[in-house]
Amino acid sequence: MEELINSAKALNAKKLVVLCRLEPGCLGPDGIDHIDAFCQVAERALVNFNADICHWCLAPRLDKSLIEIQYSLAGKVLSRDKAIKFISSFEQDLDVIEERFEDKLTQLINQYIARKR
């Protein structure tokens, strides 16, 4: 079991971790009451999204001084330029990946809002 955990950690160390902080208002006027639950649900829905090179993390953006999107690799925070270089080493484009992510996130937000009504 420990071997399996260590191999999972080793695989994730080679993936770009993308932390996206979401404004509670994206879920409507009562978004503050739902943002934690939404982040958990949406993160599970994104497990397989570009899973070969990215790991997506979602968190509420309660502190506006924190940046909206943060990149890291093997526990070290990367600049956007370094994240672009890492992604391009897989012959992929970070802008395209993020655009697809935003489309998927919008879909998840709309589904969540529809269910809570």
Rank of each mutant, 00 (worst) to 15 (best):
S7D: 08
L19C: 03
A51L: 01
L73W: 07
R115G: 02
D95E: 13
D30T: 10
D95A: 15
R100N: 12
Q92S: 12
L62K: 05
A45L: 03
R61W: 04
A13Q: 14
Q111S: 09
L16V: 06
E3K: 14
S88L: 01
K104N: 05
V41C: 03
L16Q: 11
L66K: 15
E91H: 14
Q92H: 05
F86S: 10
A37D: 10
L16E: 12
D93N: 15
N50Q: 13
K15L: 14
S89W: 00
V41I: 12
I32F: 04
R115L: 06
A45P: 00
R44L: 09
S79A: 12
K85F: 00
L105P: 07
I113A: 02
S65Q: 09
C39K: 06
W56E: 02
I67R: 14
L78G: 05
I32S: 07
L11N: 10
L16R: 10
E3Q: 14
I97D: 04
E102G: 01
L19M: 08
R100Q: 13
D63A: 01
I53P: 00
K116V: 06
I84V: 15
L73M: 10
A10E: 15
Q107C: 04
L27K: 08
L22H: 05
G75W: 07
Q107E: 12
E91P: 02
L66S: 05
E98P: 00
K104A: 09
H55R: 13
M1F: 04
G28E: 07
I32H: 08
I32K: 14
E99A: 15
L73H: 09
K104W: 01
K82Q: 10
A83M: 09
F38V: 07
I97H: 03
F49D: 08
K15H: 13
E43K: 08
L108P: 01
K116R: 14
C26S: 04
A37N: 11
W56M: 11
E68N: 05
V17H: 15
A13F: 04
F38W: 07
C57G: 00
R44Q: 13
C54L: 15
E102H: 15
L16G: 09
I87S: 05
I67F: 01
R61F: 03
D30H: 09
K14Y: 07
I97R: 11
C26E: 10
F90P: 00
L19H: 06
Y112D: 02
K76F: 04
R115E: 12
I53G: 03
A74W: 03
E91K: 12
D93E: 12
D30C: 01
A42T: 07
L78V: 06
A37L: 06
F101A: 06
E3I: 08
S88H: 15
I67W: 01
N50T: 02
C39Q: 04
I35R: 05
R100S: 11
E3L: 15
L4G: 01
K15Q: 13
L58H: 05
F101R: 14
C20Y: 07
D63I: 02
L108T: 03
K14I: 02
D63F: 04
N6P: 00
Q70A: 13
Q111T: 06
A83Q: 09
I69C: 06
A45N: 12
A83R: 09
A83D: 11
C54E: 03
H55L: 12
R115K: 12
N48F: 05
K104V: 03
A10I: 04
A83H: 03
K104M: 11
A51Y: 06
K104L: 09
